[in-house]
Structure formats: structure tokens, C-alpha cells
Design a protein around this nucleic acid. Structure first.
Lengths: 137, 137
DNA sequence: GAAATGTCTGCAACCCGGTTGCAAAGTCAG
DNA sequence: CTGACTTTGCAACCGGGTTGCAGACATTTC
């Protein structure tokens, strides 16, 4: 699995440091997107700025994407294989108002409406809010 | 026009205080959604907490809606006539990455995909980012 | 292997949006 | 006018995000 992690890092031209391996590992294991603070809490003694910069690096290399779910903090989740974070690669996200988890709805690609010509679309962030299956019970 | 403002306030059962009249007036005049800070700057000597609470009141009465555009601050815009801020009343928003203005795309109602039954949808926030017609030039 | 270079990490501090407690000012019914 | 309630202004706080800097670590070059 370690080699699994490293392969993913190197595929995106990211030098695999211990810190980065750990963070990526956590992100891969989690079914929901994690915030900076949530990541921080999973470590005992790692500074948030280190994690922050790790996440910045990951984003710059399209390894993860940030989700603005309106919960007050950004959430991060690993991108799909060949994602370039362009609009046609994006999917919906679901924020559960009860457990406050945010899930990638990978099977639900977003569709951006045809806007008037003069609008140039670069990116998008579609968040649906409600109660997730786990909390509905 | 003053009576116009008051009518809107009273239609939503909001007592028309001077502060509220001014804030609503500003929101109505602006073509883009305004942040707390932007509103604050339009006044000379009004405290942000007052504006903040005014906006909270407006939201609670469905007079305005807040937009999480990912710019770091919430933006507020006046709702359409009979809006209840439920998903089927919502529209797309467009954040211009150049001028940082956020526009309501009233003519583009959002469409939420049919999720598996166990997801209960309550609300949504769809933001498209790019360059707006004014900045494209 | 030691020196020099560059990258990564930890700490502290800061910025800024949002939020709250509290007291003063304003509103309004009796 | 008085007392009850609402609204406003001030100050302070909280928490996420961000940055500067110095020390740790890795990598190259000789």
C-alpha cells in the first residue's frame, strides 16, 4: 500500500515525503471529504500549516480538489484518475446537514447550462445539501 | 420609492426601520450580490454587526438569500417575488474571477439530479466561475 | 564525507469574515 | 410619562486560512 501511495504521488510529479504519504493515505481512506482541521485532528503533533501546504501542493498537481460546501471550511477529496479539475470533470457534492460530512457524488457529473456567449466558464462548484443516507435511517 | 421599499419589507413581515430601509435599498440597486463588507463600505458610520443582524433578519424572512460563492465571504441578493428559498426556487450564480462580482442568473433555474432515494435534499448552492460579460470585453 | 544548495516542516503570528454580549438609544403600548 | 421590548453601536472573540522565518532534512557537487 505504501507503494500504492507513492505511485499516486509520483504519477502527479509530487515528491513523496512522509508527511505527504500520510495525508494522502488519510484522504484515500476517508469516504467523505476532509477539512484542514479534521486532518489536523487525525495527527497528534503536526502543524496545520504543514498540512495546509501539503494540500496546496496536492491541489496544484490535481491530485485532490477542494470543495466549498459552505460549512465554513474547505473540504478536500482525492480526484479521480485523469481529472484536470476542469468543469467537464467535476461532479456534484453532497453536504449532510446532520453529520456535516461532505461526499463526492462521483456518479453525478455536473452539467453547466449554456450561458450567453459572453460568459466564459472556467470552473464550478455545485453543492447539494440535505440528509445523507447514513443519517436518514 | 421609499414606500416601495417599505412595501417589500412589510410584505415579509419585517418592521421597516431606517437601517433596514437603507440596506434593502442598496441591495435592490446593486446588479450583483453584495458581501457584508461591501455593504459596510457603502455606509460611513454603521457598525458591521448591525448590518449583519439586518441581513440575518432579511434571510429569516426570505427577503434575501445568501450565496456561498467561495470568495471567502458570503454574498447577499434580494429574492424573487414569491421565493421560499427551496431548491426548486433556486437559480445558478456566477462569480467573476476578474472583478469578483457575483451575479444571480435568475433565468437559469438549477436542476438537482435524481439522487438515490435515501438522500433527502433540502437546499443547494450552484456556483459557476469564470469571466463575466463586463470583464470579457 | 563535507560543504553548498534547495526543499520541507514547525512555530508563531497575523488577517479577515463571521458572531456574540452588553449597554445605550430608540420605539411603542398603556 | 413609564415600563417593556426592539434595534443599534461598540468591543471583543472565534476559527479558518495564510505567511515569514528559522531550523531540519534531503540532494547534489566536489
Amino acid at each position: 500500500m505504501q507503494s500504492e501511495i507513492n505511485k499516486k504521488l509520483e504519477a502527479k510529479q509530487i515528491k513523496p515525503t512522509p508527511m505527504r504519504q500520510l495525508v494522502l493515505n488519510l484522504l484515500l481512506q476517508e469516504p467523505s471529504a476532509l477539512s484542514l482541521r479534521e486532518l489536523e485532528e487525525k495527527f497528534d503533533k503536526v502543524d496545520k500549516s504543514t498540512i495546509y501546504r501539503t494540500l496546496q501542493t496536492f491541489q496544484a498537481h490535481y491530485l485532490i480538489h477542494a470543495i466549498e460546501d459552505g460549512s465554513g471550511s474547505l473540504r478536500y477529496a482525492v480526484c479521480e484518475e485523469n481529472c484536470t479539475c476542469e468543469p467537464h470533470h467535476l461532479h456534484f457534492h453532497f453536504l449532510c446537514l446532520k453529520c456535516q460530512h461532505t461526499y463526492c457524488l462521483h456518479d453525478y457529473p455536473i452539467q453547466i447550462p449554456q450561458l450567453p456567449e459572453k460568459y466564459q466558464v472556467i470552473s464550478a462548484n455545485f453543492v447539494i445539501k440535505g440528509i445523507c443516507p447514513n443519517c436518514k435511517a
